[in-house]
Each structure stands twice: as structure tokens, then as C-alpha cells.
């Protein structure tokens, strides 16, 4: 390494975070290697957005776990429409409405939805693993579940319409979060109590950054169960439901 690069001596802090720390500098600027690394990550994230949501593959994997699923589509059929007109992603297409109305999923406690959102890679890579953990958490509880709804090109609010049609008490939506440079495949869970069209983000609770390098499938599932239990007691989700579950208690479960 040439001397014109001023290296940062706190390299050892890198083990605590994936953040781009201790990059060093040339003058005030990034060394060439770091500049190229950054731009490569951007290229990877850009491509992740345009990956395809592999609903059929996920459906097969769920079948192996004895989970039934249903495929629906929002009104956004094209990626460009999805990106520029979020409202299209918040409504079901007509055909999907009929699929749901004619399904055997009505009047259950919890409706589970999986969507590609802004990162199909997240749904493709993590949804099956996460659903398995969620299944374990809720085994032997009184809650009844719908089939798993695989919703293509959905926004979070689509869960309101789905929940309303299926008359579910809760909706939980597993959705690909917008890809970051260091996390092109991060999954989020949005919980809505008593879903109906017109709910707002303030009515929901979110568990974010679910992926092996972030929040584990297990921790996310434990948190979800806690939120659902508390939301039921409170008769509400969203800002009225504060997450006061101690995180220490969660890690004791390991």
C-alpha cells in the first residue's frame, strides 16, 4: 500500500459492525479500492430490485412443510408501475379478490402474507425459513391461521385489503425491504390488528432487518409472538402498543 493513503488505525473496530468504517483516505477522499467497492455494492442493490419473486418455488417449499399457499397479485403488474405508482401496489387486482373471496381462508385469527416488496431477493431467500420459525412459535397456541398468501408487487397496505376480505383478526406481512448497499435482501414484518382498508402506518408494528446478518429468524418470531399477544390484550396494534419486551430475556432463550 502506498504511503499517500492515510490508513485508519482503528481497523479492529470493524469486527463490531458492517458499516463502512476505517476506510482510510487520500487527502479528504476515499481511496480508489473503497470507491470501487461502494459502486459495486450499488450495482448489486440496483440489480436486486429487478430480481423476480419466485412464488412457485416458494409454494413448493411450503408444501413440503405442509403449509398451503395462495398466489395473488396487486394492481401493479410491471415493476415500473410498482415503483412510480405505490397505490397500485396497495390494491388487489380483480382476479385476486375473487381468489381470496372463494378461498377457504375466511374468519381465521391470523393472516400471513409474503411479498416481494422492494427486494424480491429478501422474500426469495428468507421467507420460508422465517415462516418455519413462526410456525414453531405458534405451535400449540389457540391461534388459527389462513393459508399463506404470496402477494406479488405488494405494498404494506395491501395487507389491509387482504385482511378485510378474509375477515382476519391480525395480518402479518413479510415483505422485502428496500435494499441497502450492505443488505440487498432484508425482510421486514408488519403487524396490523383488525386490518381493514384505510389503516395507516401508525396502526402497525414493524420488525425490521430480518436476515442472517441482522435480526435472526428466531428472534424475529419471538418478537412477533410477543407483539401479537400484547396487541390482543390491548385490542390494538401500532403506536399504542409499545415494545417493552426486554431484549435480554430474548437472548436468554438461546
Amino acid at each position: 500500500m502506498s504511503k499517500i493513503i492515510k490508513e485508519d488505525i482503528w481497523q479492529f473496530l470493524k469486527k463490531h459492525t458492517d458499516a463502512r468504517i476505517a476506510l482510510g483516505r487520500v487527502g479528504k477522499s476515499l481511496p480508489t479500492k473503497e470507491l470501487l467497492n461502494f459502486n459495486l455494492s450499488h450495482a448489486l442493490a440496483r440489480d436486486a430490485i429487478y430480481e423476480t419473486f419466485q412464488v412457485n418455488l416458494i409454494e413448493d417449499k411450503l408444501k413440503e412443510m405442509n403449509f398451503k399457499s395462495l398466489i395473488v397479485n396487486s394492481k401493479a403488474y410491471e415493476k415500473a408501475t410498482y415503483l412510480l405508482n405505490p397505490n397500485f401496489g396497495r390494491e388487489l387486482c380483480e382476479k385476486s379478490k375473487i381468489i381470496l373471496m372463494e378461498s377457504t381462508c375466511l374468519n381465521n385469527d391470523i393472516c400471513i402474507i409474503v411479498s416481494d416488496g422492494l427486494s424480491a431477493a429478501a422474500a426469495n431467500n428468507h421467507s420460508v425459513h422465517l415462516l418455519k420459525e413462526i410456525g414453531k412459535q405458534f405451535r400449540n397456541t389457540k391461534f388459527t391461521f389462513t393459508e399463506i398468501i404470496l402477494a406479488k408487487q405488494a405494498r404494506v397496505a395491501l395487507s389491509d385489503e387482504i385482511g378485510e376480505i378474509l375477515k382476519s383478526r391480525f395480518c402479518i406481512m413479510l415483505i422485502g425491504e428496500r435494499p441497502g448497499l450492505s443488505s440487498p435482501d432484508s425482510l421486514g414484518i408488519y403487524l396490523t390488528y383488525n386490518p381493514y382498508i384505510g389503516r395507516t402506518d401508525a396502526d402497525r408494528n414493524c420488525i425490521s432487518n430480518i436476515r442472517p446478518q441482522g435480526l435472526s429468524y428466531l428472534d424475529a418470531s419471538i418478537k412477533l409472538k410477543w407483539l401479537i399477544t400484547e396487541a390482543e390484550k390491548l385490542g390494538s396494534s401500532g403506536v399504542l402498543l409499545k415494545d417493552e419486551s426486554s431484549q435480554n430475556k430474548q437472548s436468554e432463550l438461546y
Binding site: T17, I21, L23, G27, K28, S29, R178
Partner: peptide, 23 residues
């Protein structure tokens, strides 16, 4: 750090960028 927010998943400005602008 490095303009890459690993929690919010977006790109902003970095500590380096601030040094550039000051200079």
C-alpha cells in the same frame, strides 16, 4: 460511515464528504 446507512438502507453523505466540503 462511507455514506452507506446499514440500518435505514439508503445512501447519504459520509465523513469524507464533510471533509471535502470543508476543504
Amino acid at each position: 460511515p462511507g455514506a452507506d446507512d446499514i440500518m435505514l438502507n439508503y445512501q447519504s453523505t459520509s465523513f469524507h464528504d464533510a471533509l471535502y466540503l470543508r476543504d
